[in-house]
Amino acid sequence: MIKRAVGRLVKAVSFCCVTAMLICLCSYMLAPKDNTPEGGIINPSANGFFSEPKNSVEIAVIGNSDAYSGFSPMELWKTFGYTSYVSAEGHQSLAQSYAQLKKMTECHDIKLVILETDEFFVKSGLTEGAMRLANAYAGSVFSVFWYHDRWKNVKLHELLKKPNYTAHCATKGQLLSNEINGYTGGEYMVKTDKREKIPLSTLVPLEMIVSHCRENGIKLVLVEIPSQTSWNYERHNAVNDFAEKNGLPFLDLNIDRESFGFDWKTDTRDNGNHLNSLGARKCTRYIGDYLMKNYKLTDYRRDPAYEQWNRDYEEYKKAVKI
């Protein structure tokens, strides 16, 4: 009786293992082989860091649409000479953030992480979060759940090929926009003692990001880019509590906006939700200033190995019409 039960258990477990292995194999075969849009990668601009020269990026900017609209790596490069990449995705969950950070630390020598805090308050699905975390842990073994549809375009000879990343993202992950649709409403940062609760589904991966940084000697800075529609003082308080508890710096750019010349009339592209390139430049200079004063980061502007960054800046300059 017991013998039969054990036998069945062994059989069931080994079947699950075999199936899981086959799923991993499918993940490998169907994973995008390049980080260009044609390669089929989801959010190519957030994944452009794969094809930057190894260990060339030192600052990782992680977040959702607020981050890729409101932070400008090129501005940071021009003004301070720091190398950064924005790996942000629309509606990114913190589990995703963790996965992106892991990937980024694998191919770059990340010294500092700027984590945009807007996404702290976006609840995410339990199973999806769990799968994303599993992916982050075990190196995208379950990426087939996101990339399964690539069976349509994958070529037979590509199936077993290793990925070869070739994309070049000159803005380093930033979404450029010269559109101006100002916000004219009232003040949204009304001081209060109330705090919004950070949901559990984001708190778990958040703790994982914090400890990942700690273990790898990476500095972590929490930043909130100005956003009228998604930010308020209750959220500010909640993040502030979290930052204090973990001994992290928290820069809320919604407060004292005037001190760095931020203007809601000119600096947003969609009436106060996301910033445009002008707003991004102002925020980036402010953040860069803070980084220069508080951390020892290297200025690579004179380093010939980073000549490409200067060329990228020229392109950026044309695009944002400076």
Binding site: I23, V144, F145, W146, H148, W151
Partner: peptide, 8 residues
């Protein structure tokens, strides 16, 4: 897993 019409 592969041919299901789900996800993105």
């Amino acid at each position: 897993v592969v041919f299901g019409a789900y996800g993105t």
